[in-house]
């Protein structure tokens, strides 16, 4: 810790070397494993994770595209679930943020804790709870039970993004709008929505990314359907062509990367709220 402490004293002189090395090593630790995933998508060795790969090829991309029809239905399902769950979360999360940022009322703290609960508790609890509730209600497992589960934890992501923006939205702007003759709905349309729009979009993007690769809750709420992460999990446990799994993983990395970058771009002017409490 002494290197951190020194940092304080020598702030003007730039960061101390020890701290910089620690920070950069930490970041490399975060990123190198993902680079390996990409590397192994090009290996010629399909049975083991031999390093360095004995040879390089691009044939697995073709194999994944043409010879593995089992990839497509899970992909479609994941996209469908993520899209619907995100839409539901957008509506419910925005409503919750709007209500809780409006006024102080009794129980507000408890309610905001309630919205954070689905991500604060381990996913397996959310999963098994929903499963036993569906059992009790006699609900058949289907696409909709998956969506129900995903929407529950996606609400939090939208809520977190929206409430941060609502708090920054000065109450004066709303009063100014009403003062100038706009009723509540007009104020929402012309003042509130343009102000929170980018935060909602960012929240929606992150919710989509979260839903798209969720596996823990999905395992419990899915019936016979398999989403892309579930497909991947079964490939991890019982591998067939390992490099094909890598190809799909590379695809997943990029599919989730786009909304993350977009969400960052949309909220970069403000506080960094997006993932602080995913």
């Amino acid at each position: 810790m002494s290197s951190d402490a020194k940092a304080v004293g020598s702030k003007k002189a730039g960061s101390p070397l020890g701290l910089r090395i620690a920070a950069i090593t930490g970041l490399l630790f975060l990123h190198l494993p993902l680079a390996l995933i990409i590397l192994y998508a090009f290996t010629t060795e399909e049975r083991s994770f031999q390093f360095p790969p004995p040879g390089y090829t691009t044939k697995w991309f073709g194999v994944a595209w043409y010879e593995r029809p089992d990839i497509w239905p899970p992909l479609y399902l994941s996209l469908k679930v993520a899209a619907i769950a995100t839409l539901m979360a957008l509506v419910l999360g925005t409503l919750a943020a709007a209500a809780l940022s409006r006024a102080k009322f009794f129980g507000r703290e408890t309610i905001s804790l309630l919205f954070i609960l689905p991500i604060a508790l381990p996913g397996i609890i959310t999963g098994i709870s929903l499963r036993s509730a569906f059992d009790i209600m006699g609900l058949d497992f289907s696409v909709w039970t998956i969506i129900l589960g995903h929407a529950t934890f996606c609400i939090v992501v939208v809520y977190n993004n929206a409430i941060a923006r609502f708090r920054r939205l000065s109450g004066n702007l709303i009063e100014a709008s009403m003062d100038l003759g706009a009723d509540g709905f007009q104020t929402f349309r012309y003042v509130i929505l343009p102000q929170i729009g980018s935060a909602l979009l960012a929240g929606g993007m992150l919710a989509f990314a979260l839903s798209f690769d969720e596996v823990i809750v999905t395992t419990f709420t899915a019936g016979q359907q398999s989403t892309l992460p579930i497909w991947m999990l079964s490939e991890l446990i019982r591998p067939r062509q390992r490099p094909v799994t890598n190809v799909v993983a590379v695809f997943v990395i990029f599919v989730t990367l786009i909304p993350i970058l977009a969400a960052y771009y949309l909220t970069r002017e403000g506080e960094h709220t997006g993932g602080a409490s995913k």
């Binding site: 975060l30 798209f212 690769d213 596996v215 993983a249 990395i253 989730t256 993932g275």
Partner: peptide, 8 residues
Amino acid sequence: PLWSSYLV
């Protein structure tokens, strides 16, 4: 890394 796929 926070948002990229857990399984990956």
